[in-house]
């Protein structure tokens, strides 16, 4: 599913809305999540999951082609952890054993 397919599904399910508005709704959701993460905040949507920002320390990387050492700066990476409900739905409620 792509963003445009998502918009098309929503439009079909909500014939009273202009497709322009449906596009705006979808854009608003992802723009707002992006903005929150850029502010260093976390976004928690129960049942769906949580978006957070993780810090990665500076390290010495290596150019895989030449083997040359290159410094990699400290950086932030967006991270998503699926919520319990979504995790179970994706796994179709299969038991995963007791480990972890």
């Amino acid at each position: 599913m792509t963003k445009s397919e998502l918009i098309a599904e929503l439009s079909a399910a909500n014939p009273h809305l202009l497709s322009r508005d449906v596009e705006l709704i979808v854009a608003t959701i992802f723009t707002e999540i992006t903005a929150a993460l850029a502010r260093g905040e976390r976004v928690e949507l129960r049942g769906f999951g949580a978006f957070t920002v993780k810090r990665r320390d500076a390290r010495t990387g290596r150019n895989p082609r030449t083997g040359e050492a290159v410094p990699v700066d400290e950086k932030a990476v967006p991270f998503f952890k699926a919520g319990k409900e979504l995790r179970e739905r994706v796994n179709h409620g299969k038991r995963t054993g007791e480990a972890g």
């Binding site: 608003t28 959701i29 707002e32 999540i33 929150a36 502010r39 260093g40 905040e41 976390r42 976004v43 928690e44 949507l45 129960r46």
Partner: peptide
């Protein structure tokens, strides 16, 4: 740290 939720969205 602030948390953005369904209510904010």
């Amino acid at each position: 740290m602030n948390t953005v939720t369904r209510a904010h969205l």
